[in-house]
């Protein structure tokens, strides 16, 4: 399967379709994967593809605007392309998507790749990328979908319990903002926490600021989060950020029957106004 990716990638470089192919290679721990930007055929030979390939590589398209680029995408990652095309961040014709069908990826952190599915995978409903120019099948038994167990558990908590839960989570936040940096939907030229005049929140690490940071970020992603789960994967102190995103995704889907990134045509609810919505409000 990886041979198919490699030969397609080489073809794309050789015929000049793209200048760079973003795929995966083995990390220095010998166990997990890391992104590889390949510009030559020799580099492409280092590509791998398996259930440790957890990163959402489509996020890097934001760093390569206007440059013809091929990117290996799993189903969840592929939604990034639709999102960014729809939000006028990237040009579809500059992107060649090498889609990979996905049975689910595993929890893989430095030095260890477990058999345990990533939380994003147990809630995922896509097996085939939402957008691709070439499709490769990743073998493997499809992981069991369990719905949203953590979200359901959170819904049963009282508001006080929920507040206490989230205060405990945000207390240990180190405000590195890695959740933002890895997020394909977080591309504001100046993030609200980095604004100095006015200083809306600032970079201070303290409970109120940390809460505002995470809640505003979650709201900015309502109806836009494509559920790649990267924010939760990269968080160095293990904050379950996808719970917030899934909650808002469920609300948006319930209200507007919309999930972002499944195609680039359906207009997102925050970009359109339908008269019926006003009626429903009454």
């Amino acid at each position: 399967m990886v041979d198919e990716i490699r030969s397609k990638a080489k073809e794309l470089l050789t015929d000049g379709t793209v200048e760079c192919v973003i795929g995966y290679e083995r990390a220095t721990d010998g166990v997990t994967a890391r992104p590889l930007f390949a510009y030559t055929a020799e580099e492409i030979d280092r590509f791998i593809m398996d259930n440790t390939c957890v990163h959402n590589l489509a996020r890097y398209l934001l760093d390569r605007k206007g440059k013809p680029t091929a990117v290996v995408v799993k189903p969840c990652d592929s939604r990034t392309i639709n999102l960014l095309v729809q939000e006028n961040q990237i040009e579809r014709d500059k992107v060649f998507a090498i889609g990979v069908t996905c049975p689910g990826v595993v929890e893989a952190h430095w030095g260890e790749a477990s058999d345990e599915a990533q939380p994003r995978c147990v809630t995922c409903s896509l097996e085939v990328p939402a957008v691709y120019d070439y499709l490769v099948t990743m073998p493997g038994e499809r992981q069991t979908r369990t719905g949203f167990p953590d979200l359901e558990r959170m819904e049963t908590m009282s508001p006080e319990e929920r507040r206490e839960f989230w205060e405990r989570q945000f207390e240990r936040c180190i405000r590195c903002h890695a959740c933002r940096q890895v997020c394909p939907g977080c591309y504001c030229p100046i993030c609200f926490v980095d604004q100095l005049d006015p200083t809306w929140v600032g970079i201070r690490n303290a409970p109120p600021e940390n809460q505002v940071w995470h809640l505003i970020r979650a709201f900015h992603l309502a109806g836009r989060c494509i559920e790649c789960g990267e924010c939760q994967r990269v968080c160095p102190v293990g904050i379950p950020l996808m719970l917030l995103n899934q909650k808002l995704a469920a609300e948006v889907e319930g209200m507007f029957d919309f999930r972002p990134g499944l195609d680039a045509e359906t207009l997102p609810p925050f970009a359109v106004f339908k008269k019926e919505e006003l009626e429903a409000e009454r």
Partner: peptide, 12 residues
């Protein structure tokens, strides 16, 4: 190329 400039390295 692959760095996402996430600050984690500096903060840990």
């Amino acid at each position: 190329d692959r760095c996402i400039h996430c600050n984690i390295c500096s903060y840990v």
